[in-house]
């Protein structure tokens, strides 16, 4: 089970890598999606390990997935609006052009 937790942590770090290092808005959204997946997977594996308490972890995992879906939908729409305004997905360029 420890291997699963470590793999979840690696997936979370991959998501953080996407959010911190990448400059493209779509890649940042993909990174956040990977982080949400890692948290949901960790909750599922915890529920599986605990056996009888699986229902509680399933519910929290489901809420994590659907909450993440809502956040990412709004982020995609915001990214489109930013592209329409600045003509680029590059966040450093958007930061330079703001104001």
């Amino acid at each position: 089970m420890t291997t699963t937790y470590v793999l979840c942590a690696i997936l979370f770090i991959v998501g953080i890598y996407g959010v911190v290092v990448k400059k493209n808005l779509i890649k940042i959204i993909i990174g956040i999606s990977l982080m949400v997946q890692s948290v949901a997977f960790l909750l599922l594996s915890l529920g599986y390990a605990k056996g009888a308490g699986q229902g509680l972890f399933q519910t929290i995992g489901l809420v994590t997935m659907l909450g993440g879906l809502g956040v990412m939908s709004l982020m995609i729409i915001t990214a489109i609006r930013l592209y329409e305004k600045y003509g680029t997905f590059d966040i450093s360029e958007i930061r330079r052009l703001k104001g």
């Binding site: 779509i26 599922l44 699986q54 995992g61 993440g68 939908s73 995609i76 489109i80 592209y83 997905f89």
Partner: peptide, 29 residues
């Protein structure tokens, strides 16, 4: 893992997210 609800929730989430991302790419670059 035996988590049918989360599996169905995942199907719904990605069935919304992936077309939305493809639509965003179609509108932009």
């Amino acid at each position: 893992f035996g988590s049918v609800e989360v599996g169905i929730g995942g199907i719904v989430a990605f069935a919304v997210l992936i077309p939305l991302l493809l639509w965003a790419l179609k509108r932009t670059i």
